[in-house]
């Protein structure tokens, strides 16, 4: 007898494809947030599955802090080109240069600076919807997030006043100036993402695999030593983020989750394949976000950023 049921990845996939097609059908000017990280890599495959043989009917958008791993940027640009998609990049540096963002001396991380840059890009292109790769299992403030997450005219999230979401019926209605963030991977776990990458044989940036790298120890984690600053005519983008007297060592390591270079803790690991990574996650005793400095700022770090318009 033939069995008509879906395994867990097929279920998550059909749910996500449905969500992506709702975006294409309900919004006039959607964009897909693509950083080159593992979650957004899955989003791209889902977009192919949702929209082929037609073109993916939305551009990709990425917001750079200026502290990115070079490997990630190379991968991002190449994937967008391979898929024939338009890639829009907006950066904190541009925003500082044209005066729409101001750097805070005391805050080395530009993580929060991504907020005005993202909102600026939404305004510039009049995007009414941005698809993102966030998952509910990642972080507490995300556990209450909707698939279709409403943002007001200032890009703000109001967690206490969210639209209830029932069955597979998503309320996509907006008034002028408002916009939506949509998260097709809401129900995926870190393990699901890697299992999907394995099943779909998706390429991921090589920094997810074990390599040798010089790191230094700061605020409870091993951070990568930033690339040297070679052009003395420009300010050093990593000023303040370079190692001082902290302990240093050359590590065989990889990333489990990618923020930028100054907030991604490196994980000592011999994992050189997707199978190794899956094995490592099954045995892991800390969560993925345990290696993200941007989430450790306070108990409500993510909530505060999200309320202001973060991804």
């Amino acid at each position: 007898m033939k069995s008509y049921h879906l395994d867990h990845l097929q279920y998550l996939e059909t749910e996500a494809i449905h969500v992506m097609r709702e975006v294409a059908a309900e919004f006039e000017r959607p964009a897909l947030l693509f950083s080159g990280g593992k979650d957004s890599i899955c989003l791209l495959r889902l977009a192919e599955k949702a929209f082929r043989p037609a073109d993916i009917p939305m551009p990709f958008l990425n917001v750079e802090t200026g502290h990115e791993f070079p490997e990630l940027l190379e991968f991002r640009d190449r994937r967008a080109k391979e898929l024939g998609a338009k890639l829009i990049v907006r950066s904190v540096d541009q925003a500082v240069a044209n005066g729409t963002a101001v750097l805070t001396k005391s805050e080395i991380s530009r993580n929060r600076m991504q907020i005005p840059v993202l909102l600026g890009a939404i305004e510039e292109y009049r995007f009414d919807c941005c698809i993102g790769g966030a998952r509910r299992d990642e972080e507490k403030a995300r556990a209450k997030e909707r698939f279709f997450s409403f943002r007001d005219g200032f890009g703000q999230w109001d967690p206490k006043n969210q639209r209830p979401e029932l069955w597979n019926l998503y309320n996509a209605r907006l008034n002028g100036g408002e916009n939506m963030r949509v998260f097709p991977l809401s129900n995926w776990t870190e393990m699901d993402v890697w299992e999907y990458i394995k099943r779909e044989q998706l390429e991921v940036p090589n920094i997810y695999f074990s390599h040798t790298r010089e790191c230094f120890f700061r605020a409870g984690q091993w951070l990568p030593v930033p690339p040297p600053h070679t052009d003395p005519t420009t300010p050093d983008p990593f000023e303040g983020a370079r190692p001082g007297k902290e302990p240093r060592k050359t590590m065989v390591c990889r990333v489990r989750t990618i923020a930028d270079m100054i907030s991604t803790g490196m994980l000592e690991s011999p994992a050189t394949s997707i199978d190794d990574i899956i094995g490592e996650i099954s045995a892991a005793r800390v969560t993925e976000r345990g290696s993200r400095a941007d989430d450790k700022a306070s108990e409500a770090a993510m909530e505060d950023r999200k309320k202001q318009g973060y991804f």
Partner: peptide, 10 residues
């Protein structure tokens, strides 16, 4: 507390 992640909830 595992999922009551919002400040008002805590």
């Amino acid at each position: 507390n595992l999922t009551d992640g919002l400040r008002a909830e805590r």
